[in-house]
Computed example of a mutant assay.
Amino acid sequence: MELPKNRFKAALKEGRHQLGIWNSISGSTVPEAMAATGFDWVLIDTEHAMTEAHQVQPALQAIAGYPEVSAIVRPVSNDPAYIKRYLDMGAQTLMIPYVQNVEEARAAVTAMRYPPNGMRGMAGAVRAGRFGLIPDYLKRAEEELCLIVQVETIQAMEQLEDIASVDGVDGVFIGPADLSGSMGHPGDQGHPEVIAAIEDAFTRLKAIGVPSGILTLNEDFARRLMELGAGFTAVGLDLTSMMRDVRGLKARFSDG
């Protein structure tokens, strides 16, 4: 059996923009339904969501029913124990939150790789290696693993190029919510200073050839960042979309 191809990683390398959506509702039904809509990628969030580690594998299995859709998992933190578990479950792309400096980026890379290049613990019968049916999985796994690091504070932005250039980092996600707080504008992602900082980050990342990404519900801003060379953009979130539609439905009947 061959090592599964990471379509998301390949697309980033080829410069093909990847459009995504965020999954924060626990379980396998919602991520499966989101994959069915045809986005390029679905992110399974365990940082700002109630999704526990044991719920991630069923979500990955649900998304796998749509071969053209890539799954990304966001651990709760830059913790090698969680990174190891999600990789064993078959996640090929991880988004690591709150990476503040080069050392933390290197730590994430080390957690992603097997020895001698890293510290990922070895196990045989795991979903990632097709339960032992991929004979060279331990030697070749990192070929198809993709690491996205989140830069989301002013302090990290000052080291953006250094973080992005760490060997093993495949892309940088700019976290607009935490960045707004770090800049003294908590919750105001549309503040001109925050917008300018994000656009500057995308420009800087493009200049060094590192894919950039973001989650924004502002469609005009999303298109603006795509024009600046975004590699991957999430434009929706399941819970937010549900609340917007339900509130709209309620309002239409209340007005009547």
Rank of each mutant, 00 (worst) to 15 (best):
L3K: 10
P186T: 07
M243W: 09
G171F: 00
G118W: 06
L138N: 12
E199R: 15
Y86N: 04
G248A: 13
W22D: 07
D188Q: 15
Q155G: 07
S182L: 02
V99R: 01
F39S: 06
S212T: 10
L205C: 05
D88V: 13
N6A: 07
I154G: 11
G229N: 07
A196D: 11
R130S: 10
Q159Y: 03
K139A: 14
L147M: 06
L179R: 01
D200R: 13
E47G: 02
F39I: 12
D188E: 15
P75E: 04
S241P: 09
Q150G: 02
R223A: 14
P80R: 09
A123V: 15
I72F: 05
A10W: 13
E144T: 05
R127V: 07
T110A: 14
L87H: 05
V109L: 01
V246G: 08
V73I: 09
A91Q: 02
Q189C: 12
G187N: 09
A201L: 02
A230E: 05
S70V: 06
P75S: 10
V69G: 00
P116N: 00
D170K: 02
T110V: 13
Y114A: 00
D170W: 02
F131S: 10
G171T: 04
G121P: 05
E103M: 06
E104Y: 04
G229P: 01
A141P: 00
L228R: 11
I163E: 01
R7Q: 13
E142T: 10
V151F: 01
M1V: 14
P75Q: 04
R85F: 09
S26L: 13
I72Y: 00
L147N: 00
A91E: 08
P75A: 10
I163A: 05
N101D: 13
Q92E: 10
G168T: 07
M242H: 15
M89V: 05
A59Y: 02
W41R: 04
F173H: 09
T110P: 07
R7L: 08
F253L: 12
E142F: 07
L147A: 00
I96W: 00
R223E: 15
L249I: 13
Q18Y: 14
G129C: 03
E152W: 03
I174V: 12
E199V: 08
Q189P: 04
Q159V: 08
S165C: 03
T153L: 11
R113K: 10
L3P: 01
P75H: 05
G124S: 12
L239D: 14
L217C: 05
I163Q: 00
F221W: 10
Q55F: 14
G181C: 12
L60S: 12
M1L: 15
L138E: 09
F221G: 04
A53P: 12
M242W: 15
M242R: 13
N218A: 13
D136H: 12
G256E: 15
K206Y: 13
I154M: 14
F131R: 11
Q92P: 05
S180D: 03
L145Q: 05
P58D: 06
Q159A: 07
L179Y: 01
A49I: 07
M157L: 13
V194F: 03
G15L: 11
G248Q: 12
Q189Y: 09
P31E: 09
G213C: 02
G213S: 00
F39N: 01
R247G: 11
P176L: 03
I214L: 10
A91C: 03
L133F: 10
E142Y: 05
I72M: 04
